[in-house]
Simulated assay, not measured.
Amino acid sequence: MLNKEDTGLIVVDIQGKLASIVDESEALIENCTKLIQGAKALGLPIIWLEQNPEKLGKTVDSVAELMGEQSPVEKYTFDGCNEPNFKHALNEAQKHSWLVCGIEAHICVYQTATHLANLNFDVHVVSDCVSSRDINNKQLALNKFCNERVKLTGLEMCLYELVKDCRAPEFKLILSLIK
Rank of each mutant, 00 (worst) to 15 (best):
M1Y: 06
N3V: 00
E5C: 05
E5I: 06
D6Y: 07
D6I: 08
D6W: 06
T7I: 06
T7Q: 08
G8P: 01
L9I: 00
L9T: 00
L9F: 05
L9H: 06
I10R: 05
V11T: 03
V11W: 05
V11F: 05
V12M: 06
V12C: 13
V12I: 13
V12G: 03
D13L: 03
D13W: 01
D13V: 03
D13T: 04
I14S: 05
I14L: 14
I14A: 05
I14Y: 02
Q15E: 08
Q15A: 09
Q15D: 05
Q15W: 02
G16D: 08
G16K: 05
G16R: 07
G16M: 05
G16W: 02
K17L: 10
K17T: 01
K17I: 00
K17M: 06
L18V: 07
L18I: 09
A19Y: 00
A19P: 00
A19R: 03
S20P: 00
S20V: 01
S20L: 11
I21F: 02
V22E: 02
V22D: 01
V22K: 03
D23L: 06
D23H: 12
E24G: 14
E24A: 15
E24Y: 03
S25I: 11
S25F: 06
S25R: 00
E26L: 13
E26K: 13
E26N: 11
A27E: 02
A27G: 04
A27L: 12
A27C: 05
L28M: 13
I29G: 11
I29H: 09
I29A: 15
E30R: 15
E30C: 12
N31C: 13
N31F: 11
N31A: 15
N31L: 13
T33L: 13
T33S: 15
T33D: 14
K34V: 00
K34F: 10
K34H: 15
L35E: 13
I36D: 12
I36M: 15
I36Y: 14
Q37V: 02
Q37F: 01
Q37A: 15
Q37I: 01
Q37N: 15
Q37H: 13
A39S: 15
A39Q: 09
K40N: 14
A41C: 10
A41D: 13
L42R: 11
L42I: 01
G43P: 04
G43Q: 08
G43N: 12
L44V: 03
L44D: 04
P45L: 09
I46V: 15
I46A: 12
I46L: 14
I46S: 12
I47L: 11
I47Q: 02
W48M: 10
L49W: 03
L49N: 03
L49V: 05
L49R: 04
E50T: 07
E50R: 10
E50I: 08
E50M: 12
Q51I: 01
Q51L: 04
Q51A: 05
Q51M: 07
Q51R: 08
Q51P: 02
N52M: 08
P53I: 09
P53H: 12
E54L: 14
K55L: 07
L56Y: 12
L56H: 11
G57R: 07
G57K: 08
K58N: 11
K58R: 13
K58C: 07
K58V: 06
T59L: 10
T59I: 09
